[in-house]
């Protein structure tokens, strides 16, 4: 008697099915890398803290009102002009830098500004103060922050090209890949302390 074999199942299309599933997962997998404007908050001051007296000319005041309009140093301004104005202020270099650990940094010798005595003394003294209204739109607020950061980025980049013949972004990238490289670290620190980012957020106005 002939034995009845169960007919073999054709597995030829198995690969196709698996590929289909594979492609589905490939497409739906989102490697979403979060990105954002990073910021370091200042520490909470002790209750008996007396804020230091800062000269008016070393403060760059940016106000954003509830209609998302900008007032910079007492004048209305469009967002697109903010970067230039901030660069002009930071890079002015009209006087001596601050005294750090008993060492005076002296006048700014890498600044390209006008050296006017009405504007900031030194990049390490130049403070940008952003004041917004409680009802200001967050989008506008972040655009302003971004423009200010761009101003710093441009200045740092210029200095980096001048001193080390390499854009600052690349310098930072190289340092990130090679954390133990003391020479790179020194360069990055040097640029960062030459143009420190001093952006302060003032308490927003309400009502």
């Amino acid at each position: 008697m002939a034995r009845r074999d169960t007919p073999e199942i054709n597995a030829g299309s198995m690969a196709d099915i698996a590929f289909l599933l594979l492609i589905f997962f490939l497409v739906t997998t989102t490697m979403n890398v979060d990105s954002g404007v990073s910021k370091k908050l200042s520490e909470k001051p002790p209750p008996d803290y007396v804020p230091p007296v800062i000269k008016e000319k070393n403060i760059f005041e940016v106000n954003i009102n509830r209609n998302n309009e900008l007032l910079v140093e007492g004048e209305r301004m469009e967002v697109k002009d903010l970067k230039e104005a901030a660069i002009k202020f930071i890079d002015n270099g009209g006087g001596d830098g601050k005294v750090e650990n008993g060492v005076a940094t002296g006048p700014c010798d890498y600044c390209n500004g006008e050296r006017s005595d009405k504007s900031s003394d030194h990049p390490n003294k130049a403070i940008i103060s952003v004041q917004s209204d409680r009802l200001t739109e967050y989008g506008t607020y972040l655009t302003v922050q971004n423009e200010l950061l761009r101003a710093y980025a441009e200045l740092r980049n210029r200095l980096s090209l001048e001193r080390y013949k390499i854009p600052f972004a690349e310098l930072e990238e190289a340092y990130k890949d090679d954390r133990d490289n003391a020479a790179l670290k020194k360069k990055v620190e040097d640029i960062k302390t030459s143009y420190p980012q001093i952006i302060s957020d003032a308490e927003p106005t309400s009502n």
Binding site: S35, G36, V37, S38, K39, K40, L41, E43, L142, N146
Partner: peptide, 10 residues
């Protein structure tokens, strides 16, 4: 004292 923040943006 959570001082490091990131404003998420595209």
């Amino acid at each position: 004292n959570a001082l490091k923040i990131s404003y998420s943006a595209s």
